[in-house]
Amino acid sequence: MEWVRFIAAVICLAFAAIMEIIAIYGVYRFRFVMNRMHAAAIGDTLALLLGALGLVILKGLSWFSLKMILVVILLWMTSSISSHVIMRMELCIDEESIDLERIDM
């Protein structure tokens, strides 16, 4: 049982690390604000959730894991809101971002 839990936690943490690497790569690879935001959101949501989940599985249910879940909830709220604000700002001040179809590599 202990081994199963350990392996599940390691898989979660490994996926979180992979997602984070993809997010960082995307942030530096793309040139346009919204593409970069999309890449960064992968790290902010999926990688965060998987990392916290892995730690919770590793630790078992306790006050520590409840705190981790609270951190995930708060960060999901704030990161999506900050993305929303950045997007509206971008739409307000950048004339070229009206063409939403473009993908600048």
Partner: peptide, 20 residues
């Protein structure tokens, strides 16, 4: 001038988050 005014999404979340 350039910022969107009274963004309801930001306001609702700030209502919850600022006291926390």
């Amino acid at each position: 001038y350039l910022e969107p005014k009274n963004d309801i999404i930001v306001q609702k979340v700030a209502n919850f988050l600022v006291p926390v």
